[in-house]
């Protein structure tokens, strides 16, 4: 199976969801009109509002159905004949709580056939230093794998993948393509590249290589109150190699064709996922022990 993916990075206008939906639609229009090879177009974390909103999450959050409806309305005038899948990040209002969420959508020419395929709510909420997510949004509770038109996939958001266990769970559940959306403010300027750009590349390459999966990463750009998001969106193959990456800080889109058949080749060369599967029962007992001990210790 070949999947043509596009990772997009642009600078959203702060808190202006309508304007940012317009821009998402503009990108989709460009993809359709210029025949840019695309089955899945991936946008960064919080692309509909910008990342640092603090209490502004209350004003910018939308129900997911509204995001779908608004995007479909904008997409219809130039909709292409074949379906187009979209991944995007936004602040979500769901069941009376706010979340940092991602949607996987399938857009079709007929508005009524457009649909939400999957919603991921960020599992690990960074709340340290410059990050304050736990103050303003609730934590998602699932790491799910879902079926797309192109096979099993997962969507993860930013700190979700800084914990290797999250990627391991998604891989064990059968995801072959990881859509990883991010908003990463640049810090660390003594190396050959911005510190967190190098860290991101290391994390995504390690994750792809360890599990033999494809990674499509879309990462926010633009300065928000002095904090600059790095961009450098990238696609990583199951051998842990960066196939393509977008420029630092600049608005851009990158394209790549994913060949899921390479997954088997990568896993045959390095069968780490199979090893993990075989050791899973023992690992689970180890984890349960840790959890029980922690629980007992905290009771003392």
């Amino acid at each position: 199976m070949k999947i043509r993916v596009v990772a997009v990075q642009f600078k959203p206008r702060k808190g202006d969801v309508e304007h940012n939906l317009d821009r998402v639609a503009e990108v989709l229009q460009q993809v359709c009109e210029e025949n840019i090879p695309a089955d899945v177009v991936v946008f960064p974390e919080t692309i509909l509002s910008g990342y640092f909103l603090e209490g502004g999450v209350r004003e910018a959050a939308r129900p997911r159905e509204q995001v779908l409806t608004e995007l479909v309305r904008r997409y219809q005038p130039f909709a292409r004949p074949e379906p187009l899948d979209v991944v995007l990040g936004f602040y979500e209002l769901w069941h009376g709580k706010y979340y940092n969420s991602a949607l996987y959508l399938t857009l079709e020419r007929e508005a009524e056939r457009c649909r939400i395929v999957h919603t991921h709510r960020k599992f690990f909420l960074p709340t340290y230093g410059v990050f304050q997510e736990k103050r303003f949004v609730a934590r998602g509770r699932n790491i799910e794998v879902f079926r797309t038109r192109f096979g099993p996939a997962t969507v993860l958001i930013c700190e979700d993948v800084w914990h290797s266990i999250t990627g391991a769970i998604a891989a064990l559940k059968g995801a072959e393509v990881f859509y990883v959306i991010a908003a990463s403010p640049g810090r660390g300027f003594h190396g050959e590249n911005v510190g967190n750009v190098m860290k991101w590349q290391e994390i995504l390459c390690n994750m792809a290589e360890e599990h033999g999966i494809w990674v499509v990463n879309a990462s926010l750009v633009g300065f928000e109150g002095g904090k600059g998001f790095v961009g450098n969106s990238m696609v990583v193959n199951p051998f842990g190699q960066v196939v393509v990456s977008a420029p630092l800080m600049k608005e851009a889109m990158v394209t790549a064709t994913i060949d899921t058949e390479e997954i088997a080749i990568a896993r045959a060369n390095a069968p780490l996922l199979a090893d993990l599967e075989s050791g899973l029962a023992d690992l689970l007992i180890e984890m349960q022990e840790i959890a029980s001990e922690q629980h007992a210790r905290d009771r003392q």
Binding site: F189, H190, G222, G226, G228, L248, M249
Partner: peptide, 26 residues
């Protein structure tokens, strides 16, 4: 001394973008 060393071309690129973004766009 080493920890305080900066990649000056990279910092320049970053700060130029900062000024454009914060002044013009924002």
């Amino acid at each position: 001394e080493e920890l305080l060393r900066i990649n000056a071309p990279l910092v320049t690129e970053w700060l130029v973008e900062f000024l454009r973004d914060e002044m013009i766009r924002r």
